[in-house]
């Protein structure tokens, strides 16, 4: 499909929720300090948020959604759809969205299901919900996006749940999308064990040292760093230019380019290739790490909240990663309802 435009859809508001629990990538034995400082310099990630043992993605998303509903003044019975984009469901089945429909006391007439996407997920989620709204068949929808992906050993990932309010509005400016998939690269980011093709067995749980001397289990996420780096830095700059051409919105007219927060090397390479000033490409890597599909809305919240809630802005949002998949959208927001970051 590649490029498509949705009309009659307005982004009304946005709330992000992170755990209070913070970990630093510099918390390490003294003899590892230098190595860790080099890591922080290069991946650009200092502190990360990690769920307490009793917290899950759905808890973060629920807190975000309830704060958002209060802020936009929507009644629960008005919610027509609740779509969740996550790779951290409460259970393999059923969908977390359906469980949340009940936990949030939404009506049983609510359309609720999950979408399995990671870092690229936010634009895909806006497109899915926007497509449902565009015809006017439904009027108000919640998009809950994010993951519980942090662990103590891995320095990249951080936990966050987000809620975005989208509504049918014939006066809304159009939203332009570019959405892509390349399954040839599916092994670049993969949990190879635990599905039907390779069910978890006892030997998968035995820790082993990898090439970098890190202890891993077969059940851990496998991330081919060089493949992901090349995919991101080769695919995204031309894709963003092409979308701006399609949207007839020159890149210079975009107020902010909000990229998935992958790591500093990837994000800086994309920014430099597009010749963008740093102030137009906000970053939350240092404070929040890579929060998967939540990183775009989290960066909008943590870095642009005052600006986006005060008036109109033209945004280019871009997510890229697992699949491989990459999706971007150009949208014009008007005084978004953004009550601020929620910490639980």
């Amino acid at each position: 499909m590649a490029m498509v435009t949705l009309s009659n859809v307005r982004m009304r508001g946005l709330v992000c929720c992170v755990p209070r629990s913070t970990i630093s990538n510099l918390d390490c034995p003294e003899e590892k300090k230098g190595e860790r400082e080099r890591l922080v310099r290069n991946i650009g990630i200092h502190t990360r948020r990690i769920c307490y043992p009793w917290q899950y993605f759905s808890d973060l998303a629920k807190s975000a959604a309830e704060t958002l509903l209060d802020a936009v003044g929507w009644k629960r019975e008005e919610i027509d759809a609740l779509i969740v984009v996550t790779q951290s469901p409460d259970y393999p089945i059923p969908s977390t969205a359906i469980i949340l429909q009940d936990r949030m006391k939404l009506p049983t007439t609510t359309i609720a299901y999950d979408i399995n996407l990671g870092c690229s997920g936010y634009p895909f989620g806006i497109y899915t919900v926007g497509s449902m709204l565009a015809s006017g068949g439904i009027r108000k929808a919640l998009l809950l996006v994010g993951d519980k992906c942090a662990n103590l050993a891995d320095p990249l990932f951080s936990d966050c749940g987000t809620a975005t309010a989208l509504e049918f509005d014939p006066s809304a400016p159009p939203i332009h999308f570019d959405l892509n998939s390349d399954g040839l690269g599916y092994r670049a980011i993969i949990l190879p064990v635990g599905g039907h093709r390779e069910p978890t067995q006892i030997h998968h749980l035995i820790p082993r040292k990898d090439a970098d001397g890190e202890t891993r289990r077969d059940t851990d996420l496998v991330l081919d760093g060089t493949a992901v780096l090349n995919f991101s830095t080769q695919r995204i700059p031309p894709a963003l230019r092409a979308l701006c051409d399609y949207a007839q919105t020159p890149l210079e007219q975009v107020d902010y380019i909000v990229l998935h927060q992958a790591n500093r090397m990837i994000n800086e390479t994309i920014r430099k290739k597009l010749q963008l000033a740093p102030e137009r490409v906000p970053s939350t890597l240092y404070d929040f790490g890579n929060t998967s599909s939540a990183s775009v809305p989290l960066t909008m919240t943590a870095r642009l909240r005052e600006r986006l809630s005060a008036g109109p802005a033209t945004l280019l949002l871009s997510g890229f990663g697992i699949g491989l998949s990459w999706g971007s959208c150009v949208l014009r927001t008007e005084s978004l309802v953004m009550p601020g970051l929620v910490e639980v």
Partner: peptide
């Protein structure tokens, strides 16, 4: 290490 590899790939590209 893997971090160095990423840095070198970025350098060769840019």
């Amino acid at each position: 290490d893997s971090l160095a590899a990423l840095g070198v790939i970025v350098m060769c590209d840019t």
